[in-house]
Amino acid sequence: MLELRLLQGSLLKKVLEAIKDLVTDANFDCSATGFSLQAMDSSHVALVALLLRAEGFEHYRCDRNLSMGMNLNNMSKMLKCAGNDDIITIKADDGGDTVTFMFESPNQDKISDFEMKLMDIDSEHLGIPETEYEAIIRMPSQEFARICRDLSTIGDTVVISASKEGVKFSTKGDIGSANVVCRQNTSVDKPEDATVIEIQQPVSLTFALRYMNSFTKATPLSNTVTVSMSNELPVVVEYKIAEMGYIRFYLAPKIEE
């Protein structure tokens, strides 16, 4: 038996909007730790890892570990039927082939339940080691989204180069080229507006902008984004989900042939 009650139901709605275009079907894993997901896009270039910790739920009951295969587009359709202020409860029976999403309006005058069919998904789980990254950039998530969107109008790939001087985003296309440099800036009124660059050594990696733009669909989840890079490793683009966990996107770099 599984029963997870999330007071801030809008968080789950935002999580689905952030991942449903990248991944079609995925297994949600439920354990004593929390509600989590790891899935790759169909071409195995990008990976998304989600964790919503048990402590972040108002009520969290998970009698035994359960993996529930869901079509994310269908799940998104159901969650769109929940109001932004609704409380969302996820319910499932051990060994059942459905999951129920229950939506309660804030003043309890409307209660809906939507039952969705589960599916068997043969998904591959990758082991991602804890890594000390050579460059870690924390910046306002809206600024990062803006840069990715702007550059994708010029080119298909972005070179992200981080050094002590700052982080440079560069692209080239048929019509020309573009560079955006962000310098460390901690003299801001609100800490979430800061750009903080931690560098062990300079890093420069090339990525497909299409994926970066897809990751920025998680922007409504967090005011800040953290981009962690090491030479010759996938980048990690992380959005923290307040008091609950995170959504991390990993993207394999483009390599010289």
């Binding site: 991602i128 490793l233 042939e257």
Partner: peptide
């Protein structure tokens, strides 16, 4: 010319 690397060339299956 650059080629797109796969996630599986960096991380092993569990």
């Amino acid at each position: 010319h650059s080629a797109q690397a796969s996630m599986k060339s960096f991380f092993k299956s569990k």
